[in-house]
Design a protein around this nucleic acid. Structure first.
Lengths: 335, 335
DNA sequence: CTGAAAGCGCTAACAA
DNA sequence: TTGTTAGCGCTTTCAG
């Protein structure tokens, strides 16, 4: 029963009256064969419906597969989904294939995923968490594979880094709200499964307030995933403690929209009595009754850069170690 | 320079004083070795930081890799992201790894992805589109690989199908609105990149109206992606043509929320003057000022079932060809 | 319970 | 321009 199911190089070679090597060369579009041979080979490839076996190819050339592992916090996070989709498109256009993983902010999960990935001898790895376990670092080291760290810019990357500074996002928004004359500001965040460095934004935000002679009056960090619910209830909680706040900076847009929903439900005037600012730039943010003041993250640009840089590195082309992707504060009608 | 970079079975075998085969057997947890041998081997595996080479394993056993290809319309579609995430988790827990793809509703894109996938000799494939190109079908056939079609239930599947009926979703919502006494209903949809069989829901919806002695008065199908914007403008357009409509059924929740935003902006009373119903069950739908009337799709359940069925099939266990996943109409405050 | 031999389909290196 | 040889690291098969 060791019958072969599909035609291999061997069959094509025989049918075309050449050797396997010649077929291989033609298929990989190199040089070293005549026009005539090429046509003959391609004809047979087509006729016999040859499907290459990349498993064999990758295996045969120890350490030159076209598999790329990409690990994000969650596939269901809108921003990361955009990044992932862009990476996948870009990579496949360049002849690589993506193996995904998600770590949900747990370094052990990333580690376990990587362990499994490395056994496929990938050509490269794209990681999106800031913290890596010791074992992860060792694995990466011994796998001797290019690594791109994305999202949160790492100025001393393992290898390559593409991203932006969350602290700067927060700082910029803080300065913006100070400029708008807000006096008593609060932050509503979420701990679990954030993956978005909300705390760094909060700190940058606080720094900007301090620079403006103010302070971050109150923070409400939910032990929950960021989302509409969390934003709604977080707003309720923080306002019950400090009804005098006149501005709220949220972990992200979904939470900010939850906050807006709370205000709408309770008749709190936005931005008259309370300013609301989000982060991330989701589509909804720009259409909801009042366009949300937020920071737009260019996910497409980020994903494309990450994928292209990885491939450049793989091809031995020179490439920048650290690539900053600019975010953009977009003032809306809520702050 | 043909130096090996990592330890292989060979090295472990030598270090443990046994043969490669014994190491292989121990590692795969089969039988045919003593306690003592196993401990010795595992100790060396650990000490030498052995990383198996799955490329070699998959290659060596022609047609038995642990790769599973999953193709969805878009990674950025919330519902599909949930399905994909669940599939990925389930598969990796069962020892398989996911290779993703997205086709953006274009059969050729699915075909191209599949062509590339098949060259990795995957153990199985999960597809989410209803239409497949002729070449796709042929490839699937000749790859002789289990196929699970998800999302839109296919009652005559290529192999296995897991999903629900979009027509039934629409029908159920139609009957619900008729029951609520609505008289003049419209549908707001979107064509591009839907991947969600919106037209099937629309038809089911219209059928229910007909059954109630009514008809679908007006449809506005945008040549755009479904989303907040599309919902907003679609509502504006359909109401400008038919200001007398008293209920609107939307392609999905995002569009419905866009519609709600339009009503809020124009002071249209919901549901007093206009009822609004969505589809999909996004989180936001249940918190926005008024909880949206919608149909909840159990994405987790769907993804889990699909992955488990595929694995059952791979293991030769008996499994149902067609698995219906029940959706649930959740009445809110908008209809 | 353990081992030796063969081979999966391809590509690198060398010949011709 | 083309062909030959060897081997990637593992598993299957068969023999101890």
């Amino acid at each position: 029963m060791t019958k072969k199911t599909t035609a291999g190089l061997e069959e094509i070679a025989r049918a075309a009256g050449v050797s396997k090597m010649t077929v291989s060369r033609v298929l990989r579009g190199g040089t070293g064969f005549s026009e005539e041979t090429r046509d003959k080979v391609l004809r047979e490839v087509d006729r016999l419906r040859y499907v290459p076996n990349r498993l064999a190819a990758a295996f045969g050339t120890t350490g030159a597969s076209t598999l790329v592992g990409v690990c994000v916090p969650r596939l269901t996070s809108r921003l990361f989904a955009e990044v992932l989709e862009t990476i996948d498109h870009t990579l496949s256009r360049l002849g690589y294939q993506t193996m995904i993983g998600s770590h949900d902010q747990k370094p052990e999960a990333e580690e376990e995923w990587l362990k499994s990935l490395v056994s496929w001898r990938p050509a490269g790895v794209i990681l999106s968490s800031r913290e890596h376990s010791r074992a992860t670092l060792e694995l990466l080291q011994s796998a001797a594979v290019p690594v791109v760290e994305i999202w949160d810019l790492n100025t001393r990357p393992i290898d390559l880094s593409v991203g932006f500074s969350h602290g700067d996002c927060g700082f910029e928004m803080g300065r913006f709200l100070v400029g708008r004359g807000r006096q008593r500001m609060g932050f509503v965040g979420a701990l679990a499964g954030a993956g978005t460095q909300g705390h760094a934004r909060r700190e940058g935000f606080a720094r900007a307030l301090a620079e403006g002679g103010l302070r971050l009056e109150e923070s409400e960090i939910l032990h929950d995933r960021p989302g509409f619910y969390a934003g709604y209830y977080g707003t309720e909680t923080i306002l019950s403690r400090r009804p005098d706040l006149d501005a709220l900076y949220f972990h992200d847009d979904e939470m900010a929209i939850g906050g807006l929903a709370y205000c709408a439900a309770k008749g709190i005037n936005v931005p008259g009595r309370l300013a609301i600012a989000g982060w991330g730039g989701m589509e909804a943010a720009s259409i909801l009754p009042k366009r949300l003041t937020t920071t737009v993250v260019p996910t497409i640009n980020l994903g494309k850069s990450a994928a292209e840089l990885l491939v450049a590195r793989l091809r031995g082309e020179p490439c920048a170690d650290v690539t900053l992707i600019a975010t953009r504060l977009v003032p809306g009608a809520t702050a």
